[in-house]
Design a protein around this nucleic acid. Sequence first.
DNA 1: TAAGTGATCTCT
DNA 2: GAGATCACTTAA
Length: 191
Amino acid sequence: MRSHILPKAFFMQSALVVAHELLGKFLVVSKNGKRRSSMITEIEAYDGFEDKASHAARGKTLRNAPMFQEGGIWYVYLIYGMYNMLNVVTGPRAYPAAILIRGVDGIGGPGKLTRLWGITRFYNGLPLNQSTGLWIEDRGVVIPQKLITKSPRVGVMYAGPVWAQKPYRFFICPSEINALYFKEPGAGKSA
DNA sequence: TAAGTGATCTCT
DNA sequence: GAGATCACTTAA
């Protein structure tokens, strides 16, 4: 087996675990008969009621409702009137948690990613699988721990000193990304 | 450094 | 209903 679609069970784990594991996995979109995929290189975790940087910090609303569902669905919302943010919901029902996909190989920036790939709120609340046309695959790439950098999350100064500074943003050092691909035919960058 | 953009949330 | 805010990007 060269690649497999990450199952719901994978996303039932805690946000920080899933966040770590998602680095090196492949985001795949299949739309209008065309398929695109790229390795996930940057993510942020938003975990629980206590996380003041999370949309769920002030309770459930119409917008953040998907975060309160069981893991394995998408949470997509519009920010600054222009940009769709793509998140994966994790953990059990009624525990709000999600991972923001901030970048893939070749595209740095969550708003750019969704714009370039045509990912909209259409996917909000839908599961990650082939039926919806947007999912995540494991293609066997393993990211050495030393290549993963942690930092505070972006754009969450409003969360106060403690939560704004939590090292919940993980990314792969960009200069190391190319070396991660398998050299065998059929694996690697091309979908 | 600041404009652009509009849904959503929190007050009236 | 009105006003503020916002997990961003781009062009200067």
